[in-house]
């Protein structure tokens, strides 16, 4: 498999009053195309910060991020926004769907942001909603859906524009065990269909072993990278 993501000596320091907090310290790893990788560690170990850096939501203090041979570090807001628009999909623990939009409207947002016409966006969004099993509930607002269903809409939204990398921050953290497992299986199935790599932050050992690789993090540093034995 070809190299998709290459992270070199990545660091992030937050100023906090007179002291600085180093959330990510000299992290190195890489992810191949279509690979599913879990970032495993306790709360506050820097998993979410790492995902925000990889998603271009924050800029690193030091280090390099290369995606398909293109540099993300040192880019301006415009370039990073376009990177998120075309290459990245986000899934969050609390779903973060827009409450005043229904399922299909939430799903088609990335396509409208990409500049697609309303009708083309609607067709593609419906197709992806079908694939996550919510074709019959496209007109429901988030408040009319269960937690698992809301996360399915979030997955559909994250994958509708065909990203190369899906960043999932504790995607099962707000779901019961059975629903969580179903969501992980869905992520695997849909990402496999699109050859989309997944980087999932989790503090659950069971969830972390669902992927192909596990990156262990503690105190902002990588403490080990190992393949998952199937």
């Amino acid at each position: 498999m070809a190299l998709l993501l290459d992270v070199k000596n990545l660091s992030k320091i937050y100023p906090a009053g007179s002291e600085n907090v180093q959330a990510v310290k000299g992290v190195n790893f890489h992810v191949e195309e279509g690979q599913i990788t879990s970032v495993m560690g306790p709360s506050g170990c820097g998993k979410s910060t790492l995902l925000h850096l990889l998603g271009g939501m924050q800029s690193p203090t030091a280090g390099e991020i290369w995606l398909s041979g293109k540099a993300l570090h040192g880019q301006n807001d415009e370039a990073l926004s376009q990177y998120r628009q075309s290459t990245i999909g986000f899934v969050f623990q609390f779903f973060h769907l827009l409450p005043h939009l229904d399922a299909v409207e939430n799903t088609e947002l990335p396509l409208l942001i990409q500049g697609l016409s309303a009708s083309d966006a609607r067709d593609k969004a419906r197709d992806v909603l079908d694939r996550v099993g919510l074709g019959t509930k496209e007109k429901r607002r988030p408040s009319q859906l269960s937690g698992g269903e809301q996360q399915r809409v979030a997955i559909a939204r994250a994958l509708v524009h065909g990203p190369k990398l899906l960043l999932a921050d504790e995607p099962t953290g707000n779901l019961d065990m059975a629903t969580g497992k179903a969501i992980l299986d869905l992520i695997r199935k849909v990402s496999n269909q699109q050859n989309c790599a997944v980087l999932m932050a989790t503090h659950s050992r069971e969830a972390s072993e669902w992927g192909d690789m596990v990156i262990m993090m503690r105190d902002g540093q990588v403490h080990g990278i190992y393949p998952v034995r199937k």
Partner: peptide, 15 residues
């Protein structure tokens, strides 16, 4: 470093 590829501008009117 080269800049990530750029798509069309958003469908601002619809949004």
């Amino acid at each position: 470093a080269s800049t990530p590829s750029v798509n069309k501008s958003p469908n601002f009117k619809e949004l």
